[in-house]
């Protein structure tokens, strides 16, 4: 964050572009690779940087379109969603908060909300439930983090084995590396080239899924 602020303060546009392009081509270093879109969003937020936005657009627009094609099943609506979502990315860049998650998560939620409101408007109701009602864009008050330590004994239980196999593949992969191969969260993040936050989220989700399964076997 500090670095990009300094960067925009002292370098001209072409240098900036070069720097961004360099960052995009480095694929061996995960730290930088996972930070590129957050940096680009920061540049857009700070000074409506069109080059940084163009890079974001080039990556996300085709992916959002593919996503939209699956959801809507037609190109016209998919493109409408892409335009609305990417316009929000441009206009609301200042609302992006990297401490709450990475850029692709933020853009995913924007597209989800756009899609929801598009489908509602099609039914043309005025007083209606909107995406803003359903998905809070902000921070809930801090809560004490519940540790996952007491889980270790339950995880040993043989009864859980079949449920472990039934986890979604992405969650099972992370759990396997952390609990069976005893890797640190950071090592798993590096190995799978996913952000650290995603590793932690997938562990919590897998634990919760196992807890539901465990409670079911008890009752």
């Amino acid at each position: 964050m500090l670095e990009t602020t300094a960067l925009t303060g002292h370098h001209d546009a072409s240098n900036r572009q070069k720097r961004i392009t360099q960052r995009m081509t480095i694929t061996t270093d995960n730290e930088i690779r996972t930070g590129q879109w957050e940096d680009a969003l920061t540049l857009v937020a700070l000074n409506e940087d069109k080059l940084a936005y163009a890079e974001l657009f080039k990556y996300f627009a085709p992916r959002l379109k593919a996503f939209g094609m699956k959801m809507f099943g037609n190109e016209q609506q998919a493109m409408e969603m892409v335009q609305d979502a990417m316009l929000n990315v441009w206009r609301k860049a200042r609302l992006f908060d990297a401490s709450r998650g990475c850029a692709s998560t933020w853009i995913f939620t924007i597209a989800r909300n756009v899609r929801f409101d598009m489908l509602r408007k099609k039914q043309s109701r005025k007083d209606d439930i909107s995406a803003d009602d359903l998905w809070f864009d902000g921070d809930y008050p801090e809560q004490e983090s519940n540790s996952s330590e007491h889980w270790d004994t339950i995880l040993m239980s043989e009864k859980l084995a079949p449920h472990f196999d039934a986890l979604p593949p992405a969650q099972r992969m992370v759990m396997q590396k952390v609990y069976l191969e005893e890797k640190s969260h950071q090592e798993v993040s590096d190995e799978l080239a996913i952000p650290l936050g995603t590793v932690k989220s997938r562990i919590r989700l897998a634990l919760d899924r196992l807890r539901e399964a465990f409670d079911d076997t008890r009752s």
Partner: peptide, 14 residues
Amino acid sequence: HDITIDQAASLGEQ
């Protein structure tokens, strides 16, 4: 929050 992060990863996999 965790589910959102998990699902959002699918965007990069399109």
